[in-house]
Design a protein around this nucleic acid. Structure first.
Lengths: 108, 108
DNA sequence: TTGATATATTAATACTTATTGATATATTGT
DNA sequence: ACAATATATCAATAAGTATTAATATATCAA
C-alpha cells in the first residue's frame, strides 16, 4: 500500500461516514458543543440505539471524539478529520482547475 | 425544505458518490484529462459495465460531465461540485475551531 | 440495595448498492 | 450491408448498511 492509496482510503472512509443524512445532522449538531446522546435524541428526533450506532460509525472514521463523564457520554466534533477530507477534495478540484488549459484527450 | 437541509442534501449526495474506492480512483484519473471509458478500463482495471455504472453515479452527483464524440464518451471532472463539498466540510471544521473557546456542555 | 437513567450491544429485518454476465444501442471502417 | 468497436442497460446475485426492538451494562439517586 503506497501513500497515495492510503490517503485515498482515508478520504473514502470519511466520505462514507459523511454519506448519510442522519450522520451529517449529528455533525452539524455537534459544532461548538460537547453533547450527550440523550440531548441528540431530543434535538434530532432519532432513536437512541440508532444514534449510538451512527456515533460509532463517526467515531471509527475519526470525525467525532467520545468522552465518558458520569453516566453520560459526551461527543464532540473532531475538526482535523473534516479538514483533511476537505483538503483532499479541494486538492482534486484545484488540480483540475490548474490543468484546464492543457487538457489531454485520449482516443483522439 | 429549507436552505440548510437542501445544502445538506447536496453535501450528503456528493459524499455518497465519493464514498467508494473505485469512484474515487475514477475522479483521480480524470484530473486534468478528458478520458473515454475504454481508457479508464485500461488504467483502472475495472470491468466496462461497472465503470459505466459508477460514471453514471458520479454524473448524477454532478462530479463529472460527459460528452459524446464519435463513438466515444468523454468524461471530465467538474471541479465546482468538489469545491462546494470541500467548502461544506471545511465550513463545519472552521465553525468548530472558532467555537472551541466557548464550548457548551449539556447535561451539566 | 433497589430503582431509575444513560448508553451500548445484539439479533432480526428491510433496503440499498456493488458486482458480474448477457445483451442492446450506436458509431465507425471495410 | 456487415463486422468491429465503444458504451449503456438489464437482470441476477452478493455484500453491505440502516433501522427497529429487545436486552445488557454502567452509573447515579433514594
Amino acid at each position: 500500500m503506497n501513500t497515495a492509496s492510503a490517503h485515498r482510503d482515508t478520504s473514502v472512509a470519511c466520505c462514507r461516514a459523511l454519506a448519510d443524512d442522519t450522520r451529517f445532522r449529528i455533525l452539524e449538531a455537534l459544532v461548538g458543543t460537547e453533547t450527550c446522546v440523550c440531548e441528540l435524541v431530543d434535538q434530532l428526533d432519532v432513536a437512541q440505539p440508532l444514534l449510538s450506532h451512527h456515533l460509532k460509525t463517526l467515531r471509527e472514521a475519526g470525525l467525532v471524539r467520545a468522552e465518558k463523564r458520569g453516566r453520560w457520554m459526551f461527543y464532540s466534533l473532531d475538526a482535523e478529520a473534516l479538514e483533511e477530507t476537505a483538503a483532499a477534495l479541494g486538492g482534486l478540484a484545484r488540480a483540475q482547475r490548474e490543468a484546464r488549459n492543457s487538457l489531454e484527450v485520449c482516443c483522439g
